[in-house]
Amino acid sequence: MTQLYVEALIRADLETLWERTQEPSQHRRWDLRFTDIDHLPRLSEAEPQRFRYATRLAPFLNVAGTGVFAGERHRPDGTRTCALRFASPHPLSLLAEGSGYWRYVPTPDGIRFLTGYDYRPRWGRFGKMADRLVFRPLMGWATAWSFDRLRLWLEHGRSPARSLAAALAELALRVAVAVLSVVLAAAGPAATGRVPELAGAAPVLAAVLLAAAVLLPPLPGTPAARRTLRTPPASVRTPAVLATLEQA
């Protein structure tokens, strides 16, 4: 399987970015993939941090898992890294186990915040097919969308809840315009039959509305996966700290 990769350039303070991605109460606010994230108790600061995560699939149905991560906050080159392993024993979780990393790379234009991760699906051959056709593309999109949501929060002060509301409102508007275009295309000729000069206008207007609903880019205040980089540069390497983590 191809590793999932997402990168966003975020113009923010490194400490603030680190806090909003490493602190569970902040992380769960912007990451669409998780409903809840909590650190588990540990005996000392020297051992890796364990955590529990959950995703709500439906009311009263949460799919949960556990993981372990370790971060390198002070590296000689000024970058920071967080590596993690995770697993879910829940029978409804297609994701059985996996691993990944986050990197924070300061540049003159902002922080390159990037992630690479992969996982093993369950459910045998059916699970592999469902993962390739549906789940993996969805996970990649959700990660990218969440990164842009985080960027809007840090760069423009738009809370994650406000960004989600804007995205839902824009989606509803696009759907309404698309439905209107279909209705106009179907009813247009009959509605303009009494005015021959307008008979050809309805299909053209319907096509323009449909194209606008589908092709116009998201508004600046709406999170968009397309604003992130989804193809890893050739120079990206898996952090060495990942090899030191035990299985979740």
Rank of each mutant, 00 (worst) to 15 (best):
Arg42Ala: 06
Ala207Asn: 07
Arg112Tyr: 12
Trp145Phe: 13
Thr238Trp: 07
Ala240Pro: 08
Phe113His: 13
Asp13Trp: 09
Leu43Lys: 13
Ala46Cys: 12
Leu210Ser: 04
Ala161Val: 10
Gly65Trp: 01
Thr115His: 02
Gln22Asp: 11
Ala58Tyr: 09
Ala186Trp: 14
Ala46Asn: 13
Val236Asp: 15
Arg237Glu: 14
Asp77Pro: 02
Ala165Asp: 08
Arg194Ala: 12
Ala161Phe: 08
Leu84Asn: 08
Trp145Gln: 15
Glu197Met: 07
Trp123Cys: 08
Glu7Trp: 06
Pro160Lys: 02
Leu209Val: 00
Leu171Lys: 11
Asp148Phe: 00
Ala169Gly: 08
Ala166Glu: 11
Leu14Tyr: 06
Asp31Leu: 06
Ala64Leu: 07
Tyr101Pro: 01
Glu197Gln: 15
Gly65Arg: 02
Glu19Met: 10
Ala142Leu: 14
Ala211Asp: 09
Ala165Ile: 09
Ala248Ser: 15
Pro59Trp: 04
Ala12Ser: 15
Ser25Gly: 10
Pro239Lys: 10
Trp102Gln: 08
Arg132Gln: 14
Leu168Asp: 10
Gly157Val: 01
Glu15Ile: 12
Arg136Leu: 02
Ala166Lys: 04
Ala83Val: 00
Glu170Gly: 10
Ala176Thr: 01
Phe113Ser: 09
Leu92Glu: 09
Thr228Ile: 00
Tyr104Leu: 01
Leu138Gly: 11
Arg158Thr: 11
Thr192Trp: 04
Tyr117Arg: 11
Ala70Met: 12
Gly124Ile: 03
Pro217Tyr: 09
